[in-house]
């Protein structure tokens, strides 16, 4: 028995040692890569980081919707990315076609903020509707049932996008101020500033709602124990609806920002960015809000650096790099960066 135990322990120790040294080697390799790139061209380094972060913050908006919903009802809402896509298509139509705004200017910015309000409200409403009609009945059903329903909803939304936006990508003129300013060789687009200026307050607002308000308290209680929450007098159905509303609103905002910064819409955006955002949420520890933002910024940064650094694998390898890192991270920390060993939720 003792021999068995010590053999087992020795193997455990060796494994842990191997894991740690592998991790250290990987960390040093990355650090080395970053350092030589930084020395070679500091301005390019900051430029790439900035682009990465501005993508990352957009992923964060979407990733929060995945993680909020998972946190409260343990459902991976596959339809969430498609809601974002519809937000983008709606915004393009709203600004360019219905309001006829095709260039920057005070009145166009007014329309932009009006669109932000409308698209957030609409996406929130649609998301609440999806929960109400597709997921709510399945709350006590086996986990696979709502999951398959979510895949179904995803296809339905994609089909709406396909009919509305056409089968190929569409490009649009946008209303955000063009141009850039320069700080020691790093050029900062006005659109980048603009999207930070919209996203950061949204993230702060969201964090305030969850941590400080009565509704947020109800969300956290419901996430931990639904029946106990009911016994406190919390209206669990309404709390779940509210969570979907919050996630939906952020997806809508992300749709508008994506469309206006990239000038592009396509019916399968939900698949492309949804996957990245979902990966961010998993990387950060699904169900953990800070984790989702952290994961999103990291993925954005990794992509940005890989695409933009003088010595790197280049754009066509970006996805491979991101997902390789995800796989590695999952092998060492299955619960994600900020996830706790027990199912950590909102």
């Amino acid at each position: 028995m003792s021999i068995f135990t010590s053999g087992y322990q020795a193997r455990q120790l060796r494994r842990r040692y191997l894991e740690r040294s592998l991790g250290t080697v990987a960390a040093f390799a990355i650090l080395f890569w970053l350092t030589i790139n930084f020395l070679k061209s500091p301005s390019q380094f900051f430029q790439a980081s900035l682009i990465g972060l501005s993508n990352g913050i957009l992923y964060a908006l979407i990733a929060l919707g995945y993680t909020l919903v998972y946190g409260i009802i343990e459902l991976i809402n596959f339809a969430h990315g498609d809601l974002f896509m519809l937000g983008a298509v709606f915004s393009a139509n709203f600004i360019t076609i219905w309001f006829g705004k095709e260039s920057s200017g005070p009145s166009a910015w007014g329309v932009f903020f009006l669109c932000l309000l409308v698209v957030m409200t609409l996406s929130a409403t649609v998301n609440v509707g999806i929960e109400r009609f597709a997921y709510r009945r399945l709350r006590r059903a086996p986990k696979l049932a709502p999951l398959i329903t979510a895949v179904g909803v995803s296809f339905c939304l994609q089909f709406v996008g396909l009919r509305w936006n056409g089968s190929g990508p569409k490009t649009w003129d946008t209303v955000l101020p063009a141009g850039a300013f320069h700080i020691s060789g790093v050029s900062i687009d006005y659109t980048t500033l603009f999207s930070f200026a919209v996203t950061v307050p949204l993230l702060l607002l969201m964090s305030w709602i969850v941590t400080r308000t009565r509704q947020g308290k109800a969300m956290r209680a419901t996430a931990q124990d639904q029946d106990a929450a009911r016994l406190m007098g919390i209206n669990v159905d309404r709390t779940i609806s509210f969570t979907f509303a919050l996630g939906g609103a952020l997806a809508g905002a992300a749709g508008l920002l994506f469309q206006q910064t990239r000038g592009l819409t396509s019916y399968n955006l939900g698949y492309q960015l949804g996957l990245i955002a979902f990966t961010s949420a998993v990387m950060g520890g699904i169900g953990n809000l800070q984790g989702a933002v952290l994961g999103a910024l990291l993925i954005g940064l990794i992509q940005g650096l890989n695409d933009g650094l003088p010595i790197g694998l280049g754009q066509q390898w970006s996805q491979t790099v991101v997902f390789s890192i995800l796989i590695l991270l999952m092998a060492f920390r299955p619960t994600g960066l900020l996830g706790k060993p027990t199912t950590e939720k909102v």
């Binding site: 956290r220 931990q224 009911r230 406190m232 007098g233 919390i234």
Partner: peptide
């Protein structure tokens, strides 16, 4: 009636198995 309505009337329960909120 739903749970939250009943609590609001002054009926409070300490459930079996404690069911406190573990991360609070």
């Amino acid at each position: 009636k739903s749970g939250h309505d009943i609590v609001s009337k002054g009926l409070c329960q300490s459930p079996e198995g404690r069911r406190i909120f573990p991360r609070m």
